[in-house]
Design a protein around this nucleic acid. Structure first.
Lengths: 323, 323
DNA sequence: TTGTAGGCGTTATCAT
DNA sequence: ATGATAACGCCTACAA
């Protein structure tokens, strides 16, 4: 690896000049520029990012915190973020936190000492208090965090209400809800919508705790159906649990959608692979990641950019699991 | 952010001493150590990783190249790698290359200028020639690359032979194979096993090109079944395509496994969610990631560690899609 | 046991 | 238009 110094020597100029041509900054005579460019080519010189970072206090890197890449919702998000960040010259560091606050704080601290340029946070445990000390922009993804932190979310409440309304329209009268994990933003919103809907329509409430995982969807459904055979519809907290519900129904010999309707939320790809295909609320997952990345980029590059909150919408995807 | 210099001043010692206690290196009197530790606490000093990197030419970071996180095989791999790297003090940078050589080379170059400590490569385009110039260890994952590069693979050939033998044992006589992408290591091995098996058993060969994607699995299956209705078994290049095959059969009203057997390869989680559940060759996916990470760590930390090739085995998972 | 000082590779401020 | 040189924050001979 050659250094800027060697390039300078070879081109017969000082490091300052080389730096100037490297960064297109300040005046430099056309001839010298050519000489320097040539020397760079000849030596196959590549600027050292670390040295550059130390000097500029920036790393062209962003951190992306997610709960768990193994949950099928996140790969698309990750892909989207990388797809906008990389062409913009930024590399993104992924971190699976399992919603563990300590790990997240540790990670953020580590990244800070690397002069990271910003964060996208799609996990739910971090709050404004933990982040306010940071001197870099943050955008919350798939959750609202605080007025002062940019966010990209979908309207989970509205989406859930639509989903449930559809179930009711299709004749469901005993709708149970499998909740997502307790302190997760999307989970709370969806539950709230369920409760309000049941209340509005004077329908009975039947809640079952879940975990955004297939097994939980199965277990919860088993429990619901054995204890409340009258249930004719399940509004699952997300697609993964809905798929678990389908699985459970099939194991119990209960026909979906004839005897039981199942509604998911998310619109992950796998929803079309199960039988029957999952009726669900489709989120613009990739687009959410894209927007979050663009927002962050703007906050990083444009001093005047301000906090923004983007609220997107989920769309009913009628397939086969609701009668 | 305070610096080592400020800590030194506060503790009444030089930066060298602070550095010594920071790194537990060299002699330092117990009292001074205490004083320094106190100063560190008081100032809430955190070492600056970038400065450290510049000085030590190491970044405690590794790069992980995969084709596409959106393929359900990779999230588990990524998770496994991170799960061993992070506790060891290394952060991992993910890169989705879509098997694009130029992007991969560009990425590697960028990472090199960041003093990256090593790479795990799970994509198929990079070859020894591209990597031999690197001064950091590399391990190939899910593919063999070269004798000189450590690797963690499973025996795709043996596994595929097992899979096909099982299909034949179960009575299949007209087995088609949906190939994975042309230049992908796993894909070539599986195809080779298919061809050899057909030859060994004097059975007819029927190949169809595919792409490791659901849609391709569907399309290829449609094509196979319409042109060769006599086919009674499909050995798909991977699970994702096998799921596509299931989907296609269902659309065509062909019963699996009664009229058509479908065999996958990989053992991704979603194989149990489709109906019928997918019979497949289960790879120890998480373990592969783990081993690769451990191998790399060893190469990084232990000067004497040598190139190693780990060959693991896939296991037949009998479920419902083969009669 | 501790301190001084040079080096890691770039950027950026002053002079010239 | 170009060159010296001091940062950036840390590590590590080498001296003391």
């Amino acid at each position: 690896m050659s250094t800027i110094r060697e390039v300078g020597k070879r081109a017969g100029v000082s490091v300052a000049t080389v730096s100037r041509v490297l960064n297109n900054k300040g005046y430099v005579h056309e001839d010298t520029r050519k000489a320097v460019t040539l020397a760079i080519k000849e030596l196959d010189y590549k600027p050292n990012s670390v040295a550059r970072s130390l000097s500029k206090k920036t790393s062209k890197t962003i951190g992306f915190l997610i709960p768990d890449i193994t949950n099928p919702f996140f790969p698309q998000l990750v892909r989207a973020v990388e797809d906008v960040m990389y062409p913009a010259g930024y590399t993104t560091m992924l971190f699976n936190s399992d919603e563990n606050l300590l790990h997240e704080l540790e990670y953020i601290e580590g990244m800070t000492s690397k002069y990271i340029d910003g964060f996208i946070i799609a996990s739910n445990t971090l709050q404004w208090e933990h982040l306010k000390g940071l001197h870099v922009p943050v955008v919350a993804l798939d959750r609202a965090m605080d007025e002062r932190i940019s966010s990209v979310t979908i309207d989970n409440y509205e989406g859930s209400k639509k989903a449930i309304k559809y179930m009711i329209d299709r004749g469901c009268r005993q709708i149970a809800h499998i909740e997502g994990p307790p302190h997760v933003f999307t989970s709370m919103e969806r539950k709230r919508a369920y409760l309000d809907s049941m209340n509005d329509h004077k329908l009975p409430v039947l809640l079952q705790q879940g975990q955004y995982e297939i097994e939980q969807g199965m277990v919860s459904t088993m429990k619901i159906l054995s204890e409340h055979p009258e249930v004719d519809g399940i509004f699952a907290g997300n697609d993964v649990m809905a798929i678990g519900a389908l699985k459970a129904a099939s194991k119990l010999g209960i026909k979906v959608p004839e005897e039981l309707s199942v509604m998911g939320f998310d619109g992950v790809k796998w929803g079309t692979l199960v039988t029957p295909e999952l009726t669900t609320m489709q989120q613009p997952i990739y687009y959410m990641g894209q927007r979050a990345a663009e927002l962050l980029l703007d906050r990083i590059q444009n001093v005047h950019s301000k906090v923004e909150h983007h609220q997107l919408h989920a769309e009913l995807k009628v397939r086969q699991s609701v009668r």
